[in-house]
Each structure stands twice: as structure tokens, then as C-alpha cells.
Design a binder for these strands. Structure first.
Length: 264
DNA sequence: AAGATGAACAACCGCTCCCGT
DNA sequence: TACGGGAGCGGTTGTTCATCT
């Protein structure tokens, strides 16, 4: 049941889903007059909508360069990376995924990422979950990207069968690169760690410079993580040793990981 | 086949910031 | 400097559709 606010009732403003006719009015008006000044645009276009509503409809849906459909593994990787750096700065993250809107990325995070955290029975902002993203999800995404394209042009990587090896995401000069590796646990624990060991094989790929980042995007060093929120912050080697020894991620959490196939 | 449930996505709301007056 | 309107951002809610029971 649609609830109409008093001022909207007075001005006969519409709310809720947009009709095809409204979309046409908005698109045609912007084609002829350009975007901006949304409140007056709404009036002059003959739309009984707020300027806000028009702006949102245009930016999130009608804009010709808006990309729709499934978020690709490359985009997922980038979202995880950038969110670990900037947190819920959706519009800032969206700037680095051409054609994707902040709303879409926010929805992706809420429906997918937070769901996975819930499945693992941990908070999405917890260290544990960040470790899962860092050591499982992101490497798995890289593996998927590699598998999908033979040798991925987007990802540079060397996976080594070493317990202390890692994936590194490197963003330099607007280029997202991944180098090296993945973590696997000692064979004594392999029974509960199959998902990880399955991608702790070696591969080599040629250098690559493809990414979702636009030219001139800001960059960092290793994984571009200047802030303490970084998944791969400086000093991660020491941290990893503790993680490796089982101090960081409980067996219960790993059991949850094993039980779910979400990161595939 | 029909209702219940949950995932995905579209849209709205409140707040803040910026800029012109 | 204060004020008001426009614009943008992040959180939240509503709607639709697919899957499950």
C-alpha cells in the first residue's frame, strides 16, 4: 500500500516504480536539455516526481552507459579490494567500476557479502571475515578469472605450493594486478581444508595491465592499502604466521567455510 | 498447484555538504 | 556570516521473482 506524504499529495507527486512513459519523458528531456537542476527538470519535463527521484532513476537505470547484469569476478575482486580500503564509500568505489552504480555495488555488498558473513556466523567487519576474504574469497576469484580466460589477461599471478605464499593485489597507475599466491594449510589439516588446497597449485601468467580501474585512478603500493583497514597491510607476514598457527581463525569458522560453497 | 521464504534489485528517506545570495 | 536550495551519499525499505516445501 503506497503511503503518500502530505506535501506530495498536495502537489500530486508520484512515488514507487517508474512507468515506461515516465522513463521516456525523462530520457527525452535530458537528451534535449541535459541533466542537472533536477527539481526544475522534473517540473519542466512534466514529471510528477521529485527531482531526487528523477536523478536517481537517471543515474541508476536510464543513463546510457550504465552496466547491468551480473557482477563479474573481476568486478567482485575489485569491490572486495576497494571496500577493504575505503569501507562503505559506495560512490567512491563505483567510480572505479565503469558503468556500475553505487546503488548496485551497495546492493551487491548487502545481499552477497553480508550474507556470506552471516553464513559463517561472523560479523562482516570482523577480522575473521576479512581473513576469509583475504585468504579464500579473493584467491578463489582470481582462480575463477584465470579459469574463465585460460590465462587471464586481467590477472598476473604465480601460485606456489607454499604455506606462506599469498595473493597480492597491486594497483598502480590505474592498473589492478595480482601477483603471487595463495595460502594452503599443512597436509595434516588438509581434510578440513580441501577448498583451499584445491587452488594451491602453481601457475604462471604473463604480465598484464588490464583492470577495471580508469586511467588516473588513485593508487597505492602493495594492494594499495595505505590505511589500517587493509586486508594486506604491511606486516601481514607476521600476522600470517599467527593465522597459520590457528590463532586467527577458529576451527568452527573453518568448518563453516567448508560447509559452504559461497566462495566458489 | 499454491503458499512461504529468501534473494536480488529498485526506490525512497534523512542527512550532510556545497555554493550562491 | 547566515540562510536556503540543489545535489550527493549511505542506510533502509519496498517490490518482484525464483525456489522451496
Amino acid at each position: 500500500m503506497e503511503v503518500m506524504h502530505a506535501d506530495e499529495e498536495m502537489m500530486d507527486l508520484r512515488r514507487g516504480p517508474w512507468t515506461v512513459e515516465e522513463d521516456l519523458l525523462l530520457v527525452n528531456y535530458i537528451a534535449n536539455h541535459g541533466e542537472g537542476r533536477w527539481n526544475s527538470l522534473a517540473r519542466h519535463a512534466g514529471l510528477k516526481r521529485t527531482g531526487k527521484s528523477c536523478r536517481l532513476r537517471w543515474l541508476n537505470y536510464l543513463r546510457p552507459d550504465v552496466r547491468r547484469g551480473n557482477i563479474t569476478p573481476e568486478e567482485q575482486l575489485l569491490i572486495l579490494e576497494l571496500h577493504s580500503r575505503w569501507g562503505n564509500r559506495w560512490s567512491k568505489i563505483a567510480q572505479h567500476l565503469p558503468g556500475r552504480t553505487d546503488n548496485e555495488i551497495k546492493n551487491y555488498w548487502r545481499t552477497r557479502v553480508q550474507k556470506h558473513a552471516k553464513q559463517l556466523k561472523c560479523d562482516v567487519n570482523s577480522k575473521q571475515f576479512k581473513d576469509v576474504m583475504k585468504y579464500l574469497w579473493m584467491p578463489r576469484l582470481i582462480e575463477r578469472i584465470k579459469a574463465a580466460s585460460g590465462v587471464s589477461p586481467a590477472i598476473t599471478g604465480v601460485l606456489q605450493n607454499s604455506p606462506s605464499s599469498h595473493h597480492h593485489l597491486i594497483i598502480n597507475d590505474g592498473v589492478l594486478e595480482s601477483s603471487s599466491t595463495v595460502v594452503s594449510r599443512p597436509s595434516s589439516e588438509s581434510s578440513s581444508f580441501g577448498a583451499v588446497s584445491s587452488f594451491s597449485e602453481s601457475f604462471e601468467a604473463p604480465p598484464a595491465t588490464v583492470s577495471g580501474l580508469p586511467e588516473g585512478a588513485d593508487s597505492g603500493g602493495l594492494c594499495g592499502w595505505p590505511e589500517e583497514q587493509s586486508l594486506m597491510s604491511p606486516g601481514f607476514m607476521e600476522f600470517d604466521q599467527a593465522w597459520w598457527n590457528g590463532d586467527m581463525i577458529s576451527d568452527g569458522l573453518w568448518n563453516n567455510v567448508e560447509d559452504s560453497s559461497w566462495f566458489l
